[in-house]
Simulated assay, not measured.
Amino acid sequence: MTSIPGAGRDRLPSLTGLRFWAALLVVLYHLSRQVGAVPGLSETVWYGRSGVTFFFVLSGVVLAWTYDGARVPAGVFLWRRFARIWPLLAFSVGLSVAVWAVMDRAVSLKAVAATLLLVHAWFPQPVMFTGGNPAAWSLSDEAWFYLTFPALLALLAGRRARVWAWTAVAVTCAALVLWPALSGLTPTTRNWALDYLPLTRLLQFVLGVVAGLALKHGWRPPVSLPVAAGLVIGWHLVLIPWHEAVPDALWYSPYNASQWLSAPLFAALICAAARADLDGRRTGLGGPWMLRLGHWSFAWYLIHEIVIRAAVFHWGKPAPGSATLMFWAGVLVVSLAAAGAAYHWVEHPAERWLRGLPGRSPANHARPPAETDRTTTSR
């Protein structure tokens, strides 16, 4: 592979647009399960929790792309990631706890503390890894990815292409082995180990890291963006008859498969979109509104379930049919508007303030070029 000249300066706006669609997949998943189904659509997004797998792979791709060759000290990198995710995490936890209080639901203070410390996904008790803000469990996994990333980059950067290829094969095969290997655990422990545990989810992040390194050095994915998108959509359609045949309680259900078998497909989609940007081709994912919605996606992910919970508590679940569709529309509009406000008034200004603290951004450790463009930053 030959290195792309000036690759760090290139923008990858399509990845920001994809972030919005992945967040939407998660939102529709929660609406289907917590509010009520919309015939035709809910069947397709019934396993939309796979959008979290997309974000785990995307994190690896973007961080590898951004920091390969940048020589940023690990401490500076970790502070930047803390500034990126923690302020909005704290805000969303406070909002979530306030809604729980209005609902007169007890809140575990230990769970809230573990969430704010970003260690809650390490506990197998559901009250811990869903306490505070249930959607925030994935940030505990992301925190683990960030801690391991400097070592992963030191181990994988500068290697030959075949090392990256074999690493991608190894982590994909490990996921295929791990899924049935944990089948003997109790359902609660198995679901925690497969769905939440940072150690197992690290496989998806590593797949993203090697894909990002390969992209940075000129690799072209074997499929085009339309084909990659078609594969992802087709995969979710395959899950519909699987769901009708196998209950989610079984270890070989489509619920687990949707998260464990989708990582290579998401990696192909991300790489195809990035490659299209690098080649100067229009994708429909990088327009002004797509970028704006992509920027809001992190806040939307953290806030939407809180809005759903509050709406169901206040109005109750709607009747099937048009009432459900209207309820969905209201939640989508309100939660997305709230996400936009949170991005502009909390997330973005808090990150800039934390990064600007004295001693946190030394002049001799300037940002890598790609990180100055917010469209390339993962969640």
Rank of each mutant, 00 (worst) to 15 (best):
F55N: 00
A214F: 09
S183H: 11
G40K: 07
Y47R: 04
A90W: 07
W242M: 09
P13I: 05
A363F: 09
V127C: 06
L332F: 11
H304W: 01
V127W: 15
R190I: 00
S138T: 13
R160H: 12
Q34P: 01
D279Y: 07
A37Q: 13
V246C: 12
W164T: 02
H217N: 13
L109P: 00
F129Q: 05
W192E: 06
L156C: 02
R201T: 05
F205C: 06
A193C: 08
A211H: 01
L109Y: 09
Y29N: 09
A165V: 04
T2H: 13
R281H: 11
S183F: 12
L58E: 02
H344R: 12
W219N: 03
M290D: 04
W251Y: 15
I233S: 13
D104P: 02
G280S: 01
H348K: 14
K216Y: 08
E371Q: 14
H295I: 05
I233P: 06
P358S: 05
P87W: 07
G212N: 08
A157M: 04
L194C: 05
W289L: 15
L285M: 05
L155C: 11
L155V: 12
V107W: 12
T167N: 11
H243Q: 13
W192I: 04
L109M: 13
R11M: 03
A37W: 15
N256M: 12
P39V: 05
L231G: 06
L237Q: 08
L231D: 01
D373L: 11
F54E: 01
T189I: 05
S262R: 03
R309T: 14
G60A: 04
T115M: 07
R80S: 02
Q259S: 13
F56A: 09
N364P: 00
L182N: 06
L78C: 02
L237W: 15
L152M: 14
D373N: 13
Y196V: 08
S262M: 11
Y255C: 07
T372C: 08
V307P: 03
R355E: 10
